[in-house]
C-alpha cells in the first residue's frame, strides 16, 4: 500500500506537470483581451417588462453577451483560431488537473490505509494532504468560475514544486502514532488545520496573481507584471483571494481552538506558547490583520493582499521553520 501511495504521488506530480504545460500553451496562445472578463460571477442582466416574457417568468435573466470576448476577434480568423486552440489547451489543462487531483487523493488514501490511521502523522503526509486540499478546492473554484482558469498555470506550478519538495526532502516511511496523538481531538485539530492550510495555500495563488495583474493594469510593464498580461482581471482575483481567506479563517480559528482543547487534555494547559502555538497565534493575528485591512477603506487593496501573503509565510514558517529549527512539544511532525 505504501509503495502504491508513493507511485501515485509520482503520477500526480506528472499529471500536474502536464496540466501546467497545457496551461502554459493556453497562456502562450491566448489573446489577452479574451480573458479579461469583467467579473468572476457571470454577468447577467435583468430584462424587465420590456422583454415581454410575461406570465410566470416575469423578469427574465438573459446572459449578457460575452461582451469582453467579442472584441477579441477583430477581423479575420487567425486570432480566433488561436483563441480556440488556447481554450482547448486550457480545457485539457483543467481535465488533467482533475485527473491529477484524483491520483493525489489516491495517494493520500493509500498512505492512510498503509499506516492504518489518518494520513497526517508527519510533515510529509501533512504536505501531501494540504496540497490535495488546495488542488481539490481549486477544482471547485474552477467549476464555479471558469473564467479564472488561467490561474491554473500558477496553481499547478505550486503543486509540482511542493509535491516534488515533499517527495525529495520530507519523505519518511509509514509509522504509527505515538500515544500523545491518539485522541479524537487530534483528528479534529489536525484535519481542520490541514483543511484551512490547503485553502490558504490556494489563496496565495490569486493573491500573487492579483498583485502582478494590478500592477499590469496600472501600466507597469516590467518583469513580474508582464507575467500577468493574460491573467483574469485584477478585481476578480482580489475577490477570490478574499473569498478563500474568509472561508479558511474561521476554520483555522476553529482548528486553533480545537488544538487548545487537545493540549488541555494532553499537557494540562490549553495554551503554553510552545513554538508551534506561538506561530499559530502569529498566523492567526496576521490573517485577522488581513481581514481588517481589507475592511478598512484607507488601506489599499494591494497592501491588504500583501498581508495575506505574509500570513501564508507565517504558516510556512510554522510548518517548516518550527519543525526544523525549534523543538517543542509538537514533535510529531518531525522529519526524522
Amino acid at each position: 500500500m505504501s509503495a502504491l501511495s508513493d507511485q501515485l504521488v509520482t503520477y500526480a506530480i506528472l499529471a500536474y506537470l502536464v496540466a501546467m504545460i497545457s496551461h502554459a500553451v493556453e497562456y502562450a496562445l491566448g489573446n489577452a483581451r479574451a480573458v479579461s472578463v469583467k467579473t468572476a460571477a457571470p454577468a447577467r442582466e435583468l430584462v424587465g417588462a420590456g422583454a415581454g416574457v410575461g406570465g410566470a417568468g416575469g423578469p427574465v435573466e438573459a446572459p449578457a453577451a460575452p461582451a469582453s470576448t467579442a472584441p477579441a476577434t477583430p477581423a479575420g480568423n487567425r486570432p480566433s483560431r488561436s483563441a480556440a486552440r488556447a481554450a482547448l489547451a486550457g480545457r485539457i489543462a483543467g481535465w488533467v488537473t482533475a485527473l491529477a487531483v484524483v491520483l493525489h487523493l489516491g495517494a493520500v488514501v493509500t498512505r492512510g490505509v498503509a499506516a492504518d490511521r489518518m494520513p497526517w502523522g508527519n510533515m510529509y503526509e501533512f504536505v501531501l494532504t494540504v496540497t490535495f486540499i488546495g488542488a481539490a478546492a481549486w477544482l471547485a473554484v474552477l467549476w464555479k468560475q471558469p473564467s479564472l482558469r488561467r490561474l491554473g498555470l500558477f496553481l499547478t506550478l505550486v503543486m509540482v514544486l511542493l509535491l516534488a519538495f515533499a517527495e525529495l526532502k520530507l519523505y519518511v516511511q509509514v509509522t504509527p502514532l505515538m500515544p500523545a496523538l491518539q485522541s479524537y481531538w487530534f483528528i479534529i485539530h489536525v484535519s481542520t488545520i490541514i483543511f484551512a492550510s490547503g485553502i490558504f495555500l490556494l489563496g496565495v495563488v490569486p493573491a500573487a496573481a492579483y498583485l502582478m495583474r494590478a500592477g499590469w493594469e496600472q501600466g507597469r510593464r516590467s518583469f513580474p507584471y508582464t507575467l500577468a498580461r493574460r491573467l483574469p482581471a485584477a478585481a476578480g482575483l482580489e475577490r477570490l483571494t478574499f473569498a478563500l481567506h474568509a472561508f479558511a479563517f474561521p476554520i483555522f480559528t476553529f482548528a486553533v481552538i480545537a488544538g487548545a482543547i487537545w493540549a488541555e487534555a494532553a499537557w494540562g494547559r490549553a495554551w503554553g506558547w510552545d513554538p508551534k502555538e506561538t506561530w499559530a497565534f502569529i498566523s492567526w493575528v496576521v490573517y485577522a490583520g488581513y481581514l481588517h485591512a481589507r475592511a478598512t477603506p484607507s488601506v489599499k487593496r494591494n497592501v491588504a493582499t500583501w498581508i495575506s501573503i505574509l500570513g501564508f509565510l507565517t504558516m510556512l514558517m510554522n510548518l517548516f521553520g518550527v519543525n526544523f529549527f525549534f523543538t517543542g512539544l509538537h514533535s510529531y511532525a518531525g522529519v526524522s
Binding site: W273, P275, T278, W279, F281, I282, V285, V286, A288, G289, H292, A293, A295, T296, S298, V299, T314, V322, F326
Partner: peptide, 19 residues
C-alpha cells in the same frame, strides 16, 4: 481601524522572539 491594524501587526511581531 488603522491603529487596530498596526497593533495587531505589532502583536504578531512581538510574539516572534517568544518562539
Amino acid at each position: 481601524m488603522r491603529t487596530a491594524l498596526i497593533l495587531l501587526f505589532l502583536l504578531a511581531v512581538a510574539a516572534i522572539p517568544g518562539s
